[in-house]
Design a protein around this nucleic acid. Structure first.
Lengths: 214, 214, 214, 214
DNA sequence: TATGAATGAGGTTTCATTCAT
DNA sequence: TATGAATGAAACCTCATTCAT
């Protein structure tokens, strides 16, 4: 909603002018990078401070504590990931074509903006007694994304019963997570686009079969 | 005095048997639990010490350093996971039956012994400059498991070319990882066995299609 | 954004009247409360800011620094304590009656406005290398109060020599301090009025004896 | 040879030998001194570390946290104060003589070992939401001391009813506290022994009067 | 085979304060 | 008359590790 302001503000000649918005962005930028590599515990405020150039105490002006910072990172990187996903127009093509389009869009977004999912999965796998807020936030936004998949499945296969829709959604998300991990581990050896196309086709076939079964 | 209370309370006559093997096990047990909850960085020697009742210095008698400890945990939990997997006899049934049997075996093992994969995935997702040995170990043993899948695929579908086998293996592993994560996140709301059965069928169908295509 | 939320919640039309005097009062009110609970070091500007709703920088607009703030608090709470003491008319009654009246007045004031003495005694007991100005102020105003007692003693017992007057004054103040502490520690279990009446009587008797002795 | 080692600590030829008991004492010694001057918040671990020569982390080996350290200081300094009080034999003299003897003993102990009471009163005056354990400990040991006074009063004046004994005990303790504060504030200008003698006499007289009244 | 004691480095967070607006 | 933003210093505490016993 803030329009596109990717370029950090106007290049005013004097940069020492206190600029809260820009500082906040710089902190978040630095944090995404580090937390995406090292996870929650591995992200030290000192490292973030070093990377963004602001002293640690300034980070605490913008964020209550580390938990708050990580949660903010999750929120922001979810939003930018959402933008990276090219939502295919709800219009044309066979179900298979449309499923494939969607899968390819997601695959591309994961190649371009992998931070969100990498950090999120790290948080999701943890089972700390006191759950970091970032984990909660991740699971929430992930749930939103999940519901969109549910909607699409339901639209493409209107005859499916709820249980089947749920199963397919779960399987679709699981495949995406798993393929993402393969790509993270094996790098370019994995052709993520091709794998997601296969995934789309298999989910599609499963949907067709489940429809017929009923 | 404060430092990590060793033997809880009074000196019960027992326990005087300084038993290296048992101590090692206690340390590993404590470490699996903590590392499975909090990941590599989140696992502090002090926490392990508190949980197993041995002083931190004793941990260093058994393990060279933290890296070594985590790697040992990965190794041990891989072995106990291997034992949990019921390797189906290479004998009977149609390919679909055999694939399903295998998938179900893996699913059960992941429900019973989830530590290996949970901790392993956390390590796998991290990208720290100096890679922990535990991560290397995990990727290695995972590679071993991966190759077994490759073997089975090749055996069940002898006509498939190498590339297709690789794709199916990747997809099979990815699905397993992804479904495991769903289960970790949503708990019993996910029927892991049913999902793995579906997974087996879809991979099987894909194999069939890929065979025909050639 | 995190830093010390200023105006709680929505901008109610009110409050726009930037009123220096009122802000100053709010800051002092907050500071009395916190400093009376936690002493000099325990009183952080951030805590005062949180309690009074004004940002920390505003506190520095009203007061030069923390020392200045605490000193101002001491001054103000001394004044309000002075008002709480009902100075008995210098007119009627026997020495014992007048001493008792005075003691009761002080006791009541300490029950109603204990901040001055509580914070003051905390400061008085500390011995830091660079003495806070608040401590100096407290000791000064306390000295003023002390001299009034001296005057009354001298008036009630004109025959006493200076040394005896000094001893009685010291003892009177000490008793007041000590009884106040008892009350602070034991709360309503201490009947401060009764104890101060006893104190008045004992000081009176001492004065009588010292007069006779000479 | 240990020749290369830097020169911290005791002058014994070999100093590097880990000696828990002595270290603990050194830490406590340093802490009494600092906390007695600056109170709870004013006592920084870094300052204690600097004064005792041990690194901050070593302090945390011996004490769980700052709270624990301060509480230990209170306990130890109470014990050494108890030893400093010369408990007069329960045998000889008139009640006044015995009360005076006792008061003089306390006065001397307060001159020689004032840390206990100074720090304790600072803690006692604070009203933090989460009470430091040191405060609790102080109030407890103070209660013990208070009960001893009760016993003595009861023994010297067996005819007093319980309420009167309680009042006299409260007054006796209050006077001691107050006189101690006067001494802390005015230094040698206060003849603490003489003041305590006066205090003993006044309490004694009050006891006599209260006995007669009944 | 173990462990009590120690330690330097670094962790998160709070501190009092300043300054441009 | 205020305040958003920033900051260096220092707070408390935990870290992984070592070493003499």
């Amino acid at each position: 909603m803030t329009g596109a302001q990717p370029t950090t503000g106007a290049q005013t000649a004097r940069k020492k002018r206190a600029n809260g918005v820009e500082s906040r962005q710089r902190i978040l930028d630095a944090t995404v990078e580090i937390a995406g590599e090292r996870g929650y515990e591995g992200t030290s405020i000192a490292a973030v401070s070093a990377k963004c150039g602001l002293p640690a105490s300034s980070i605490y002006w913008h964020f209550k504590d580390k938990d708050d910072l990580i949660a903010a990172v999750i929120e922001r990187s979810f939003e930018s990931w959402l933008q990276a996903v090219e939502l295919p127009g709800a219009d044309a093509g066979t179900p298979l074509e449309r499923a494939t389009l969607m899968a390819v869009g997601v695959a591309k977004s994961l190649v371009d903006a992998p931070d969100f999912l990498r950090l999120g999965l790290m948080l999701a796998l943890e089972r700390r007694p006191t759950e970091p807020r970032g984990r909660t936030v991740f699971l929430q936004v992930r749930d939103i994304a999940s519901r969109r998949i549910t909607d699409v499945v339901r639209e493409l296969f209107p005859d499916l019963d709820d249980a089947s829709v749920a199963v397919l959604t779960t399987y679709a998300v699981a495949g995406a997570d798993g393929l993402f991990i393969q790509r993270e581990v094996h790098g370019d050896a994995i052709d993520l686009l091709a794998m997601f196309e296969l995934h789309a086709r298999l989910v599609h076939d499963a949907a067709v079969r489940l429809t017929g079964t009923e």
